[in-house]
Amino acid sequence: MASAEPEHEHREDEEAPAGEDEDTGAQVAPIVKLEEVAVSTGEEDEDAILDLKSKLYRFDKDGNQWKERGAGTVKLLKHKESGKVLLPTMSVQEHAGNDKSCVWHATDFADGELKDELFCIRFASVENCKTFREMFQEVAESQESKEENKDATVVADALEKLSVEGKKTEENAGEEAPAATKNEETKTDTDKKGEKPAPST
Rank of each mutant, 00 (worst) to 15 (best):
E44A: 07
V39K: 07
D99M: 07
K75F: 12
G72V: 04
P30Q: 00
T131G: 00
E94I: 05
E170T: 05
S145A: 09
K187E: 06
L50N: 04
E170A: 12
G174H: 03
E68R: 13
G19V: 06
R133M: 13
P197R: 00
K130F: 12
E185T: 05
T24Y: 13
E5P: 01
S125E: 07
K115M: 02
E185A: 09
S142V: 06
T107F: 11
I121R: 02
W104H: 04
A198V: 14
A152Y: 09
Y57T: 02
P17V: 01
A140M: 10
S101T: 05
E184F: 10
D45L: 14
I31L: 13
S142Y: 02
P197D: 00
L162S: 04
V92Q: 02
P199I: 00
K33W: 11
P197W: 00
A29D: 02
E15P: 04
V155A: 14
A38V: 14
C129M: 15
Q27V: 15
S91K: 14
L86V: 10
D151H: 11
P6G: 00
G42K: 04
L159I: 08
A152H: 07
L76S: 07
A180K: 07
V37E: 05
T190A: 10
F119A: 00
K67V: 13
E14Y: 09
K193W: 13
T190S: 09
D157K: 15
D62N: 09
E68H: 04
K146D: 09
G112E: 01
D111S: 13
S142I: 05
E175S: 04
E35F: 12
A177T: 01
E184N: 03
L162V: 06
L114W: 05
D51W: 14
P199V: 03
T169H: 05
K115I: 01
S125G: 04
E44P: 09
P178Y: 01
L159G: 00
F136M: 03
L34S: 03
V155T: 10
E165A: 14
T107W: 13
A180G: 03
E14H: 11
P88S: 10
T131S: 04
A124C: 02
E113C: 08
G72M: 08
W104M: 01
N64M: 10
E195S: 11
E35W: 11
V155N: 01
L34W: 14
K115Q: 10
Q65F: 13
E12C: 05
A18G: 07
R122F: 06
E171I: 08
L159K: 13
L159F: 12
E184A: 13
K115Y: 06
E44V: 14
V103C: 14
N64S: 14
P197Y: 02
E195R: 09
E184C: 02
D21Q: 06
G97E: 15
E165W: 07
M90W: 05
E43L: 08
N98Y: 10
A2Y: 01
A140L: 14
I31C: 07
G72F: 08
L76Y: 14
T169L: 08
N128T: 04
L114H: 03
A29S: 04
G42D: 03
G70S: 03
K146Q: 11
S145I: 12
T41V: 07
E175T: 03
T201F: 13
K130P: 00
F119L: 09
M90L: 15
Q93R: 07
E113I: 06
K192V: 08
